[in-house]
Amino acid sequence: MSQKTLDARGKSCPMPIVALAKEARTLSKGQELVVLSDDEAFPNDVRAWCSKTGNHLLSVDKAEDHYRAQIRKEA
């Protein structure tokens, strides 16, 4: 499956999650999405969002000045 990237840098809580929810609607099951965010709440929030919505969080990494989360759409 192809992988999309959502650049949510420059957005603060709750907007990275709002943008992620919107983007996730366009994905089909099994498709992966990379989300970039420089919001300090993002690592915990993306974990919480995946847990709440039943999607799979593959990884969260810290890049130089932002976080990078990889998600697989399950629900």
Binding site: C13, P14, I17, V18, L20, A21, K22, A48, W49, K52, T53
Partner: peptide, 12 residues
């Protein structure tokens, strides 16, 4: 509105 949008974005 922060809680409302976060909840709606989380599928509630």
């Amino acid at each position: 509105f922060t809680i409302a949008t976060a909840a709606a974005a989380s599928g509630m």
